[in-house]
Amino acid sequence: MEEQRALRPPWALVRGAGDGSGWPWRSTLLLTVFVQVGSHFAAHGQEGGRAGLDAFARVLLVLACGQLLWRLRRPVPVVFGTAGVTALYLGAGYPYGPVFLAVAVACFSAVVAGHRRAAWAAVGLLWAVHLLVAHWLYRWLPPSGDSAASWGQEAVIAAWVAAIVALAELARVRREQWERERAERAEAARRRADEERLRIARELHDVLAHSISVIHVQAGVGLALLDSDPEQARTALTTIKSASKEALGEVRQVLDTLRTPGDAPRAPAPGLDRLPELVEQAASAGLTVHLEGEAPRLPPGADLAAFRIVQEALTNVVRHSGSRHARVRLDPGDRTSLRLCIDDDGPATGADAGGGGNGLAGMRERAAALGGTIEAGPRPDGGFRVLAVLPLRGEEEVDR
């Protein structure tokens, strides 16, 4: 609740929305008391030149201020109502004073609510009535013996009217700007949430697709050799147990970031230093992988992306290629980018271990997030190639 009050724009309190009820009774009551007291002193200062405050004048002051209770819900009728009551008050010859504050607040509320023409029309109508009374009808209206108002006084009133309208327009512009900024902040928050969901989806896909592919292959080996070669079947089951344990650990790490957002992960994210381990896992699935080149030092995000790209590429070889050999080549190139090339000799088998076909899309998203690129497709001499180019620079530079 305190945070919501802190984020409330300043004009909300001016308009009387601070009590949260939609009925600004506190500000209306305070303004009514101020107008009554101020008009009392104004009457003493203008004694002899204007009519004194009687019961009818007090009623008009209450009516002018009391209408402001509805200024948030019915701003147009309120601005015309306060202008009309104020015009009647002035036409009856009562003293000038803080009664104009009621019109100012009503005009302000109408403009901020988007009813600019209505507010201008009401204020303009009040000024026109005042000119008519002060320079023509004063002969027949109280107080008796009154003279025409000076044009200097009219200039002062006109200046006050212009100031009221200008202040209301400024508040309207500030309100629109604040609402636009609030919408932009909400959109940015939604975008960050979408990006985080996409990141987690990619992590889960890469972890589960690789591990389940290994389990799928080893389960087939175990079933085929269960009777003829129990020892080899035992090895396959051991591999399944190891792969599933590792997958559970990585999934738990990803889910921990959901439960405690912003906290540091309990285990470091995988990187290219774990490529030998990845090669062993691929070997357990029947795929021989040859590593070429040395992994350079990368920022954590790029290191994780490079590892996941290699992992997904090898998983696709296991699932979709008839080749049992693959080659992973690391090439720092001109030391500004890392080239990852994963080849297999094919041919494609069309076999699928249950994937959803999102592997290549996930690899492209990872590379694009770092300012890199992915090219994937059949090789001219057969087989399939995945070529990734990742920039060797800090992730904060990519964000800028």
Rank of each mutant, 00 (worst) to 15 (best):
L272P: 08
L272I: 06
R274A: 12
L278N: 01
V279G: 00
V279D: 00
E280D: 05
A282H: 03
A282V: 04
A283D: 05
A283R: 03
S284F: 02
S284D: 02
A285Y: 11
A285H: 11
A285F: 05
G286S: 10
G286A: 06
L287Q: 06
L287I: 08
T288Y: 05
V289E: 02
V289L: 01
V289D: 04
H290G: 14
H290N: 14
L291H: 09
L291M: 09
E292T: 06
G293V: 13
G293H: 11
E294C: 05
E294D: 14
L298H: 04
L298P: 00
P299G: 01
P299H: 03
P299S: 00
P299A: 02
P300Y: 02
P300M: 09
G301C: 00
G301T: 00
G301N: 00
A302R: 07
D303V: 00
D303P: 01
L304A: 05
A306K: 07
A306S: 05
F307W: 14
F307V: 10
F307E: 14
R308H: 10
I309G: 06
I309V: 04
V310T: 13
Q311V: 11
Q311G: 13
E312N: 14
A313S: 15
A313C: 11
N316W: 13
N316G: 15
N316A: 15
V317E: 13
R319Q: 14
R319L: 13
H320G: 15
S321G: 12
G322F: 05
S323C: 03
R324D: 15
R324H: 13
H325A: 11
A326E: 15
A326P: 12
R327N: 15
R327H: 15
V328T: 09
L330T: 02
G333W: 06
G333V: 07
D334C: 04
R335S: 07
T336E: 11
L338E: 00
L338W: 00
